[in-house]
């Protein structure tokens, strides 16, 4: 078997006649952080539920560590941890009792339970509230308790649905740190989100969902090249003669804008700061400032949808003319 823990092939889910997920294919490797991104209602949660065997697959197939979630749901659920969108707990029970209940459902040995629960609570930063009722917990604490449940379960795949939504920046930061530590343990993490900026920083690869299909799939720089035709904005402030020509000779630079008397903006498909600096110095100029803006998922995303809209307009115009 390959090193992929999740393999989806032409995964499709129809409700009535409407396809919520339409022929989605992707793979997630061992210890990889994979992001499912896209607007609300694009089919991210439905895809996740199909991977867990919690909803039936209309067409296509998905395999989780070699198991089919529809035929062997127990096998799949034993190795997968799931943190649902705005996770809920039994409010009248303490955090520890909530985890004890899940531990019993998972089948963790009673002798082991309390030790693993304590370790998990420690790791998500909730060591002191184990005996508190969950009813008094904030959203961020519930989210962390949900992560503790996954840690306690000792899984090889963690599926997190919108883990950062509704969290303040500090809580989000802590959550992302925990996700990174999961990757460190060799756990494959699949997370869905519509908050692109946050997710960009942790994901190894992303799949952009749009209307039930995967529109784009790859690492963020790959997508940037694909959609933006570059993505790196290098700004140079330097004095010198004919710098614009020198810059445009640098391999990888697509365009050079002169924004002011001594300000240049380079659009490139990679980070060309070193080459730009060398060009200025070799050209006898004086370098004052050099900065780079990495491609943002946000820019990729909005550009992609702008393009889609333009294309649609174009096709409808063509159709109108034809009619």
């Amino acid at each position: 078997m390959s090193d992929n823990v999740i393999e989806a092939q032409g995964l499709t889910k129809r409700y009535g006649g409407i396809a919520a997920v339409d022929g989605v294919s992707f793979t997630v490797g061992r210890g990889e952080i994979f992001g499912l991104l896209g607007p609300n209602g694009a089919g991210k949660t439905t895809t996740i539920l199909m991977m867990l065997g919690l909803t039936e697959v209309t067409a296509g197939s998905v395999s989780v560590l070699g198991h089919d979630p529809a035929r062997e749901p127990l096998q799949v659920k034993r190795v997968v941890g799931y943190l649902p969108d705005s996770v809920g707990f039994y409010d009248h029970m303490t955090a520890r009792d909530n985890l004890r209940y899940t531990a019993a459902l998972i089948g963790i040995e009673p002798a082991d339970r309390d030790k693993r629960i304590a370790a998990a609570l420690d790791r998500v930063g909730l060591p002191d509230v184990g005996e508190k009722k969950v009813g008094a917990f904030s959203r961020g604490m519930r989210q962390r308790l949900g992560l503790a449940e996954i840690l306690m379960k000792d899984v090889s795949i963690a599926i997190l649905d919108e883990p950062t939504s509704g969290l303040d920046p500090h809580a989000t930061h802590e959550l992302l740190e925990t996700i990174r530590s999961l990757k460190h343990d060799g756990v494959a993490v699949l997370l869905s989100s519509h908050l692109l900026e946050r997710v960009q920083s942790v994901c190894d690869r992303v799949a952009l969902f749009n209307a039930g299909r995967i529109a784009l799939l790859g690492t963020v720089p790959e997508l940037a090249r694909q959609v933006l035709g570059g993505g790196y904005n290098v700004e140079v402030e330097a004095d010198g003669e004919g710098l614009g020509v020198l810059f445009s000779d640098i391999p990888g630079v697509k365009a050079v804008d002169q924004a002011g008397p001594s300000r240049y903006r380079l659009l490139a498909d990679r980070d060309v700061r070193a080459q730009a600096a060398a060009a200025v110095v070799n050209g006898g100029g004086a370098l004052r400032r050099l900065s780079v803006e990495e491609p943002s998922l946000e820019a990729i995303y909005s550009r992609y949808f702008d393009n889609q809209a333009l294309q649609q307009q174009a096709t409808s115009q063509v159709n109108n003319h034809a009619a």
């Binding site: 539920l49 919690l54 039994y90 899940t102």
Partner: peptide
Amino acid sequence: NRRTMSRILAQPIY
């Protein structure tokens, strides 16, 4: 309503 259903059903039980 407590949003516990999907979390419980994600555990290895039917």
